[in-house]
Design a protein around this nucleic acid. Structure first.
Length: 288
DNA sequence: CACGAGACCTGTTCGC
DNA sequence: TGCGAACAGGTCTCGT
């Protein structure tokens, strides 16, 4: 489910003392933030959800400790304590929310962190792909991640150099978290459409102007996703709105909003890939 | 180095 | 209605 904008939305809601008022649907209560709240106990319901340390060590490390800050790095949620960093990756189907302590167990609950003033931080995950780490050194989990696409480290010049430096198809390259941290299947397809680049274009063929367009497309797509509180599709609903503004993702057979041509769906590296065959043509600028 | 296939998982939707 | 297949927002590992 979650890519950068969805994780950012969750991080903001956990940071906001009043909870984030997602939208006007009425189906979501505002959820209180967790910064400053103190851990009273932890429960692990699916052992593989916790990578490190053991659940006993997790409990003794955190009991009595307040949450100091909440953030995000790539698709990782970051929950900081005095001497420890907790990282949570939601993978395909994970979710993180704050519930009243009286909330009964859900079928998909994986980790419950009880807080002293009547709330539980609940990690749930139907598909069990999500993972939680508690470490003293953040590099243990985050080393190897590419730059944050919304940070100042990420520039058109850097992007062009890195694209030309490799010889890979754009779609799998943009999905590679070592290259850029945070893009997933939805936002990659949407960004490539905005940049008018075919997903199978070889990265080394991109010129500076195209790299500049791609840079802008990545930034604007992610920013719009965040502004709309992320995208929610299928049975996992979290209040985001971006799913109603997709240009290509999941729209195979429908018309391109830019040109009216029929959106195509192909498989690239086992991932469904959506694009407009008219707007996004492969051009070889540097054929070899 | 780059790519494809398989693994890890459960739930929903689609096609016959 | 039933049932198997296909598909799902992610990432890792292995073989070529």
């Amino acid at each position: 489910m979650p890519e950068l904008p969805e994780v950012e939305t969750i991080a903001r809601s956990l940071r906001n003392p009043a909870g984030l008022p997602f939208d006007n649907s009425g189906s979501l209560q505002t959820r209180p933030g967790i910064v400053g709240r103190v851990v009273s106990s932890v429960e692990l319901l699916w052992s593989r959800s916790l990578v490190t340390p053991t659940i006993e060590e997790l409990g003794s490390a955190l009991t009595g400790k307040p949450v100091t800050t909440v953030g995000r790095r790539g698709k990782f949620l970051v929950i900081a304590f005095e001497d420890y960093w907790m990282f949570i990756h939601l993978r395909m189907s994970g979710d993180l929310q704050v519930c009243p302590a009286s909330t009964t167990f859900g079928k998909h609950d994986r980790l419950r962190i009880h807080l002293t003033d009547g709330f539980i931080l609940l990690f749930s995950d139907p598909r069990k792909f999500g993972r939680v780490w508690l470490v003293r050194d953040p590099g243990e989990v985050l080393s190897g991640l590419g730059p944050e696409p919304l940070s100042d480290d990420f520039t058109p010049g850097w992007l062009h150099q890195e694209l030309v430096h490799r010889r890979r198809q754009l779609k799998p390259l943009l999905l590679d978290q070592h290259f850029i941290a945070g893009l997933g299947n939805i936002y990659t397809d949407e960004a490539l459409h905005r940049a008018k680049l075919h997903p199978l274009t070889i990265s080394s063929s991109i010129n500076a102007a195209q790299a500049d367009l791609l840079w802008q497309a990545i930034r604007s797509t992610l920013q719009e996703g965040i502004r709309r509180n992320g995208a929610s599709i299928d049975w996992v609903y979290r209040g985001g709105d971006f799913q109603n503004h997709f240009s290509v993702y999941g729209r195979q057979g429908e018309t391109c909003p830019a040109c009216g041509a029929e959106i195509q769906r192909i498989l690239v590296g086992q991932r469904g890939t959506h694009f407009c065959p008219t707007c996004q043509k492969i051009r070889y600028n540097k054929p070899r």
